[in-house]
Design a protein around this nucleic acid. Sequence first.
DNA 1: TGTACATCAGTGAACGCGCGTTCACTGATGTAC
DNA 2: TGTACATCAGTGAACGCGCGTTCACTGATGTAC
Lengths: 208, 208
Amino acid sequence: MSHTLGVRQAQKQKTRQALLDAALALLEEQSLSSLGLREVTRAVGVAPTAFYRHFRSTADLGVALVEEALGSLHPMIRHTVSPGEDSDERIARAVELIAGHVAAHPAHVRFIARERHGGVQPVREAIREQLARFAEEVRAELARDAASAGWSETDLRMLAGLYVDQMLITASLFLETLEAPEEERRRAAETARRQLRLISVGRAHWLD
Amino acid sequence: MSHTLGVRQAQKQKTRQALLDAALALLEEQSLSSLGLREVTRAVGVAPTAFYRHFRSTADLGVALVEEALGSLHPMIRHTVSPGEDSDERIARAVELIAGHVAAHPAHVRFIARERHGGVQPVREAIREQLARFAEEVRAELARDAASAGWSETDLRMLAGLYVDQMLITASLFLETLEAPEEERRRAAETARRQLRLISVGRAHWLD
DNA sequence: TGTACATCAGTGAACGCGCGTTCACTGATGTAC
DNA sequence: TGTACATCAGTGAACGCGCGTTCACTGATGTAC
């Protein structure tokens, strides 16, 4: 018999999630540093004071949003970079994966792009940590690839960082293109693929 | 005889610049979307209402800051990418140029990094336009390079975009490293150089 | 199963405060003659 | 050069409003026996 939450805990979780969802929606048009606690509770339909039962501040809520936006992405990242298979096909698949993710979770992607350099220090720090984890996971995956024979640890980390940054750039490019005509989105995807391909070519000839 | 501003115009310019400077300083610790007009005038020492003699809103002031931060950078960009000369030396010089610029104008660089994806639409748009101009200038410079023989216009634009993004990434990396120990800053510069070098290698073998 | 007590998520009133914007103003600077 | 008038950058009072935070509370849920 599985462990079920009590009624009270379940209701609390539900309210907490409603606060997170409402905040994320409000953050489509503003930054976290201007998001008001009363705005969020008003959107959910609870008293302002209820906020404090879940978060100490909007910054605290922001850190929770970082976990929600990036925490579940680690398996996907790993899978994207995994070795084997043809390079062009892997690139095409990675770009499609990013495009799909942006289409499925635009608000989360926008939040990360916006707050990565935003005005709230604990949130910047939380994003930095998650991205560092991504880079480390990509590095580990690259290290398993036969193409990485002879590469120094420094260079593997350098390349992993380049890939992570490029994924973010691609994601935020797709975000800007979300409401654009099909033609423009197609061009954005093509540019993203070529940039990744150029990095691949550089990688292939790095030790020449 | 050169044209000099009247006393009244000169004083107005001075106040306007003081508002821009005060705003930029306040924006080190918050986003534009939470910057208050009264905060800015308080920092300058003028009445809140004086603000309206210069800007219609803080968003309007933000757009002026974009021009101030990026407007004068175009010659520098052009110079960085110009052809000729050894690739490794050019890369080292470009990275040093970026490091120097970040050290000299940290608040401007932070402002651009923060507001590029920030919560104020007209400011995002102004930054987007300036970056598009950079990309176009880099593209034009790349086109003049003998190494670009045989490259399609699409690929030149793709590469120019990659360079511009990489410069921004490098600048924001240096920004984070500004107060870090020398050792870490040295490593950041080394990573930046290697990433640019990898892109150079990719470029050199693009048409293979 | 039933009872008595503890917990605690959410309430609602109250507070002091800083905000953006309006308005009529002042007085130094600029201009016409 | 001097005078009379126009311009306009900056002022200061006033406004209504929403903010974050405090506090004692309520009543449903949980727990001990």
